[in-house]
Write a protein that binds this DNA or RNA. Sequence first.
DNA 1: GCCAACGTTGGC
DNA 2: GCCAACGTTGGC
Length: 157
Amino acid sequence: MTAYRYWLLKSEPLTYSIDDFASLGVDHWDGVRNYQARNFLKEMQVGDYAFFYHSNCKVPGVVGLARVVRAAYPDHTSFDKSSKYYDPKSSPDNPRWFMVDLEFVEKFGREASLTELKHQPALEDLRLVQRGNRLSVMPVTAKEAQCILRLCEASLV
DNA sequence: GCCAACGTTGGC
DNA sequence: GCCAACGTTGGC
C-alpha cells in the first residue's frame, strides 16, 4: 500500500482552462509529447492528486486540483492522422505516448501565482520555478503540496 | 511580440 | 556520436 502522490500539470487556459475541465468533470489528459513528461504520466496512480497550472497567460499560476481516476494508457490521438497530436511513430501495437484520466476536484478560490510560488522557500526544488523549465507534467512532494494548498487557502480534508 | 532556454532532428 | 539548425515553450 502506497500513499497517494502529487503532481503538477500545465495547461494553456486559452486552449484548455480549469473552467473547461470543471464543466466536463472527468477528462483525458492527452497530447503529452515529451518523453520526460510521459514518463511521469506513466507513474501516476489512481487517487494521486494533480495541481492544475495555467501557463502562457497573463498571470500564470496554480488554479485548481484534479485527481487521477485512470492510470496511464495509450494516447489514441497519436494514432489519429487528423489530430494535431498525430505521431506516425506511435501505433496501437507499439504506443509511444500515453494519457491518464482526471477527475475535477476543485477550482481554488485563491490562485497561487508563479511569482508567489517563486518566493516560497519550500518550493525552491520544484521544477516549475527553476530556470528555463518547460516540463508540462512534474512530480510535487508532499511538503510542496502542503505549501501550495496553503497559498490557495485549500486543504484536502 | 520578444527572446532565452530547451528538446528534437538529421547531416556528417 | 557530435553538433548546428530548427521548432517549441512560456515568462515577461
